[in-house]
Design a binder for these strands. Structure first.
Length: 270
DNA sequence: CTAAGGACCTGTCGGC
DNA sequence: TGCCGACAGGTCCTTA
């Protein structure tokens, strides 16, 4: 479900319900996620006031005095704010109960998500080698050009690499490359500076627009406030293989890059 | 160092 | 209707 816009939508949806609240209890009913939920997490959170709910890449950080809970939604994770007495379903892993009488419930059928602990003054190893935020000034044409220098990797694979830039997943990589008119298979090191500058602008624009729209609704994605995302209506290539290009009318082609479905227009993207 | 592939999971969908 | 394989928003880890 989540790429950066979906994570940001989730973060924004849950933050008002969490910030300033006290964690009364952490119920871990199914600790097995990508990594097991640490046993000491409850002790780290219970009785603490939630100071902030922020985001780094696709991680949501729930900060309290002493550290932060790191939440990653993986492929199929989602969070909802519910009354504390809502019965749990099969894939409901963790409930974070609050003094408001509500709770934050983490659901993740495929279990690729994670819930970990990062003490103050320690950068968790998962966050240590992340590239810049795509919407920050640090992510600019010069930076991307330096990353592409001498690289033979397909440009799509490169922009999906979180060490290069965080938050660009399969949907928005496809969309940004379409907007930029670049063939996703093209070797990163063989793209002109001018075209990389366009690509940076397109990545920012696509992500910003998707956040505005509340993310892309795929299957059952809903933000923390329960409202669906509306970006799906604006997808030009993702999920449209075999259909006609919205710009030129030619048939969109599909290939696999790094085992990920890649859709592009053979005439608009070179 | 780079690049490519496997691995981790469950649910859903299309084809037979 | 039922079974089986392919595929799905991510990303770490191993291998070459």
């Amino acid at each position: 479900m989540p790429e950066l816009p979906e994570v940001e939508t989730s973060r924004a949806g849950i933050a008002p319900h969490l910030e300033g609240r006290i964690v009364t209890r952490l119920v871990v009913r199914q600790p097995r996620l990508r990594w097991s939920v640490p046993e000491q997490l409850a002790a780290c959170l219970e009785g603490k006031t939630i100071r902030a709910v922020t985001r780094r890449g696709k991680y949501i950080l729930i900060s309290v005095d002493g550290g932060a809970a790191l939440l990653h939604l993986g492929m199929s994770g989602s969070v909802r704010i519910l009354p504390a007495d809502t019965p749990a379903g099969k894939h409901d892993h963790v409930d974070l109960l609050l003094d408001s009488g509500s709770m934050l419930r983490l659901t993740d059928p495929r279990r690729f998500g994670a819930l970990l602990w990062q003490p103050d003054n320690e950068l968790h190893s998962l966050l240590a080698s992340l590239g810049p935020e795509p919407l920050s000034d640090e992510f600019d044409a010069g930076y991307l050009q330096a990353c592409c220098q001498g690289r033979k990797t397909a440009i799509k694979t490169l922009i999906m690499n979180s060490q290069v830039v965080v938050g660009v997943g399969n949907i928005y990589a496809n969309e940004a490359l379409f907007q930029a008119g670049i063939d996703p298979r093209r070797a990163a090191g063989r793209i002109s500076a001018a075209r990389l500058e366009t690509l940076v602008a397109c990545i920012k624009q696509v992500l910003a627009r998707a956040i505005e729209q509340g993310g892309t609704t795929l299957r059952d994605f809903v933000g923390g406030d329960g409202k669906p995302g509306y970006f799906k209506q604006e997808l030009h290539v993702y999920g449209r293989a075999g259909e006609s290009c919205t710009a030129c009318g030619n048939i969109l082609k599909e290939v696999r890059l790094g085992q990920r479905s890649t859709v592009y227009c053979p005439s608009c993207q070179r």
